[in-house]
Design a protein around this nucleic acid. Structure first.
Length: 235
DNA sequence: AGCCCATCCTGTCCGC
DNA sequence: TGCGGACAGGATGGGC
């Protein structure tokens, strides 16, 4: 998402769509927000299979093509049709429904989130958008592997060192994933129509063996989502 | 609060 | 080859 935002920002700021000038492309949680000069915004949620490709070729999964005045376009594809877009006069109301952005979050804030939800399992808690914005299924697994913490541990059982590690790895993993332009497991493509490279760095998500100890990676459902962890490296 | 389930859709993969 | 079931970067709403 952040990769798509950065690329789109470079490509479409200054262009005109239906007579309105684009002045910025922002991201809040997993929402992509295109701001217009008149104060309105075009908001996207790509869910699991959405793609936004600048000057892409329309396919049978194309839901909408946004044509800019200069002849370029933005193609919105979505195989499963879970994604959506809408134009809003003020985007602030929607943006306020989310917790802090992980890369801007300080340690005290993170600690207080865990204290607010002592009984929640750590993986679903990391993915809860109202608590922390923008962490999804892949990165929650990878963050917890890097931190040596099993995904079903309740927040209250984490010791100070574990909390610190998780906090640091949230930043580390997300920053590296952004640097490598995201993770393409199935449908993800960036705004240039290219796959992300972070998938090569996945240590547990859809992996068979642990890269550290060679143990078989455990896969289980936690609150309805697939979770992956190493039974030896994660406690 | 926290978990479970169904739901929104289309597609792939795996086992029989 | 066909068929059934599981599963899929997400999120919501209802029920217990």
């Amino acid at each position: 998402m952040e990769t798509i935002r950065r690329q789109l920002s470079q490509k479409i700021v200054g262009k005109r769509l239906s007579g309105k000038e684009i002045i910025g492309v922002r991201r809040r949680a997993k929402l992509l927000i295109i701001d217009f000069k008149d104060g309105s915004s075009l908001i996207f949620h790509l869910k699991l299979t959405g793609q936004l490709i600048f000057n892409g070729e329309p396919s049978r999964h194309t839901r909408k093509v946004f044509n800019f005045k200069d002849g370029s376009c933005l193609v919105f594809n979505d195989l499963r049709k879970f994604g959506w877009y809408k134009i809003v006069k003020k985007s602030k109301i929607i943006e306020n429904e989310f917790g802090p952005e992980p890369l801007k979050m300080d340690f005290e804030t993170f600690k207080s989130i865990l204290e607010k939800r002592p009984k929640a399992k750590i993986k679903p808690l990391l993915m809860e958008q109202k608590m922390i914005a923008g962490i999804g299924n892949i990165y929650s697994d990878e963050i917890l592997f890097a931190s040596g913490v099993r995904p079903f541990r309740q927040a209250k059982t984490l010791n100070k060192a574990e909390i610190k590690k998780i906090f640091q790895n949230i930043k580390k993993i997300l920053e590296k994933a952004i640097k490598l332009k995201g993770s393409s497991v199935e449908h993800y493509l960036d705004a240039c129509g290219k796959k992300g490279n972070y998938v090569k760095c996945h240590k547990v998500y859809r992996q068979k063996k642990c890269s550290i100890c060679d143990s078989k990676i455990t896969r289980m459902k936690i609150n309805g989502r697939s979770a992956h962890f190493c039974p030896k490296c994660q406690k």
